[in-house]
Nucleic acid binder design. Structure first.
Lengths: 347, 347
DNA sequence: TTGTAGGCGTTATCAT
DNA sequence: ATGATAACGCCTACAA
C-alpha cells in the first residue's frame, strides 16, 4: 500500500544489501577506499560490477551540494579559434572525472549572463569564460559564485579570479609593425565580427601606424558580419577600390587573410611584391597556402589546457601561484610579406 | 540541535512561505501556470523575482527522474564539419529549455561507449550520436535507453531509433563521376582520418571508377592522420610522384583539396587544365579560392537542426512520421574541374 | 484550484 | 572502520 515510485535503477542500497554492508559504506568504498577495509572494498567492487551500479549524479549533487561540472562559455561554436581552445580543454578534462557543460553566448553579453545564471544554478565545480568584457551583472555573478573562475583568451589587469590569454592589442601592434618594417607604406586593416578582441586588435594596429606617422582612418574597414574567406575577398576589393594606393593589409583573422590573398590572385596583384598580407591566429593553412601567409601565432590549445589545469588545481585546493598567465604570441613571417627590401625599415 | 546543512540557497519553500502558499503550488505556478489561478501565479512570480529564486536542476532531476539534458556525442571538437552541425543543434536548442551535454569520442568506439554510459546515468531527455558505427555494447545501450535517440551524419537501413544524414558513398560516387564526366582519366583519391564515413566515401569512389573501367588501387592514398591543408599538399605530391600520369584527385575533405590546390600552384601545375581537384563538404572557402574548388555540398547545419527537431518532438510526445531522413548532397561544380572538353564523357 | 505525505539516491553529521 | 539518521530541493501520487 506504500507509494513506491520505483525507477528500476540499481542504487547504493541495492549494492549495500547484496554486499551485506550499509549504504554509506558503499559510498565510501567508492569515493575514498582508504576509509574502508580492503576486503570490504573488494567485495563491494565485485557487487558493483555484478549489479551494474552507476552512481546517480543528480542525487550526488543534491546531497553533497557539489557537482563535477565545469561550465565553459564561448562566443561561437563554429569559430576555429574556439574549437582549438576546446580541444585543449577536452584534452585535459578527459583525464579527470569532470564534465564540460558548454555554453554558446553567440557574442552576446545578455546571452552570456543567462548562461552564467543557468550554470551557477547547477553548482558547478568551476567556470571558464571567454574574455574580459562581461556585463556588470555577469561580472557580479562570477564574483559571487562559490567556485573557481578562469577567464581565457585575453589578459588584463583585473581578473575575476584567474586568467590565461594574451594581449590582442600588442599582438596586432606587432603585426602592423612587421608590415611597416617590411617596407609597406599604405597599410590597411580589415576586420569582421567586431567583438571586443577584434576592437583591441584594431587599436593595436592604430598605435603602430600612428607611431610610424602613417595612420589614416580611410584605410580601415570593419563589419559586424561573421568573417569568412569570401568576405575577406570582398572587403579587400572594396578597400582597394576606394584606396588604390593601398599596398598591404592586416587582417583581423586568417579567414579574411586567405580571402584577401585569393582576391589578389584574381586581380593579378602580386603578393608580396605589390601587396602584403598578414593574418591573425596562424591557422594551420597559413603555412600551406601559396604564397604562404604571414600571421600572428596565438596559443589557443594551450590556453584551454592551462585554463583547465588552473581551474582543476583551484578546485582541488592547491591554488596555483600564477593566477594571471600571459601566453604571448609570435608574428610568423612568411612569403606574403616577404617583399624585396625597397624602403622603410630605416626609422 | 538540528543538523541543518544549510546551503544558503533560496528554495521553493522560501518562495512558498513568502507568497503564502504551499511549495507545490509554487512548483506548479512555475511549470504549468495553467493549473494555478492567475493572481497566485502573479504573486508567486513577484516573489520569485524578489528573492531571486532559481530552480535546482539536481533536485528536479532526482525527484522527477527526468532532466532537460540532451546528450550529443561527436568524434571531434575541432573538425569544421562537426562545428557546423553543432551550430545547427545550438540554434534550435537555444530556443528551448533543453541543455546540451557535449561528448567528444575522438573517433573511438570505446570512448563513445564510456560517454554513453555516463550520459545515460544522467537520465537524459534525448541522445544524439554521430554515424552508424557504434560498438555492439554502445548500440545496446542506445537501444535500452529510455529516451529518444537520433543518429546523425549518415543514412542507413537500420536506425537505433531516428536518423538524419546522407549517403557518403553515394556522394563520393557522384563526385568521382563528375570528374570522369569532365574528361579526367587518372583520377586519384586522398583521404585522411580514416573514419567509417571516409571509408564509405572511398568505396563510392571505387564504384564509380570501376564502373568506368578506370579503377586502379595505386591511385589511392589514405592515412590515419588528422587531415590538414598541409597534409593535403603532401599527399598529393606523394601520389603524383608515384604516378606522374595522375590528372585529377578526389579529396576526402576540403582541407585536403585546398592543400592539393596549393601544391599544384607551387609545382606550376595548372588547375583545372592539367589537373582536376574535387573536395568534399563544400566549406565556404571552396567558392572563394582561386581557382574556386569543386566540392560536394552536404547539409551539416541542417542535420543539426533537423536532428534536434526530431529529438525534441519525440521527447515531447509527437513522434514525427519521418524517422529516417536523407538530406542528400549536391556536387557543386567549380573552376577546379572546369577543364576544357577534350575527351572522356563518351562512355 | 490547492494541499498533504513521502520518496527520489546520495552524502553530512554524529555515534559507536 | 562502520552505521543510523536526517537532510539536500523538488516532484509524483493522492486527497480535499
Amino acid at each position: 500500500m506504500k507509494k513506491r515510485r520505483k525507477s528500476g535503477r540499481v542504487t547504493l542500497s541495492d549494492v549495500a544489501r547484496e554486499a551485506g554492508v550499509s549504504p554509506i559504506t558503499v559510498s565510501r568504498a567508492l569515493r575514498s577506499p582508504g576509509m574502508v577495509s580492503k576486503e570490504v572494498v573488494k567485495r563491494i567492487e565485485q557487487v558493483v560490477g555484478d549489479l551494474g551500479y552507476v552512481p546517480d549524479p543528480a542525487a550526488r549533487a543534491l546531497a553533497s551540494q557539489r557537482t563535477d561540472v565545469i561550465g565553459v562559455i564561448i562566443p561561437s561554436v563554429t569559430n576555429n579559434v574556439f574549437s582549438d581552445v576546446m580541444r585543449g580543454i577536452y584534452a585535459r578534462v578527459e583525464e579527470t572525472n569532470y564534465r564540460i557543460q558548454l555554453g554558446n553566448s553567440r557574442y552576446s553579453q545578455k546571452e552570456e549572463e543567462k548562461l552564467l545564471q543557468t550554470f551557477v544554478s547547477q553548482r558547478p565545480a568551476g567556470l571558464m569564460v571567454s574574455g574580459i568584457d562581461q556585463s556588470d551583472e555577469a561580472r557580479q555573478i562570477l564574483e559571487d559564485v562559490a567556485c573557481p573562475v578562469v577567464q581565457i583568451m585575453e589578459t588584463g589587469p583585473d581578473p575575476v579570479d584567474m586568467m590565461v590569454g594574451f594581449s590582442h592589442r600588442d599582438a596586432a601592434r606587432a603585426a602592423a609593425e612587421h608590415l611597416i618594417a617590411k617596407g609597406y607604406e599604405r597599410i590597411g586593416f580589415i576586420g569582421a565580427r567586431m567583438d571586443p578582441r577584434t576592437a583591441r586588435r584594431l587599436e593595436g594596429y592604430r598605435e603602430a601606424l600612428r607611431a610610424a606617422g602613417r595612420y589614416d582612418e580611410g584605410l580601415e574597414r570593419t563589419t559586424a558580419q561573421r568573417s569568412t574567406v569570401t568576405l575577406g575577398s570582398g572587403m579587400l576589393l572594396e578597400l582597394k577600390a576606394g584606396r588604390p594606393d593601398l599596398d598591404a593589409v592586416l587582417c583581423n583573422n586568417d579567414d579574411l587573410a586567405l580571402g584577401a590573398l585569393f582576391a589578389c590572385q584574381r586581380q593579378g596583384i602580386s603578393v608580396p611584391d605589390e601587396f602584403g598580407i598578414c593574418g591573425f591566429n596562424d591557422l594551420e593553412m597559413m603555412a600551406a597556402s601559396c604564397p604562404s601567409i604571414t600571421s600572428v601565432r596565438t596559443y589557443r590549445e594551450e590556453m584551454g589546457v592551462r585554463g583547465t589545469d588552473m581551474l582543476i588545481q583551484a578546485i582541488e585546493g592547491g591554488r596555483s601561484a600564477e593566477a594571471n598567465v600571459d601566453l604571448g604570441f609570435d608574428v610568423i613571417a612568411r612569403e606574403s610579406t616577404a617583399r624585396r627590401e625597397q624602403g622603410g625599415e630605416k626609422g
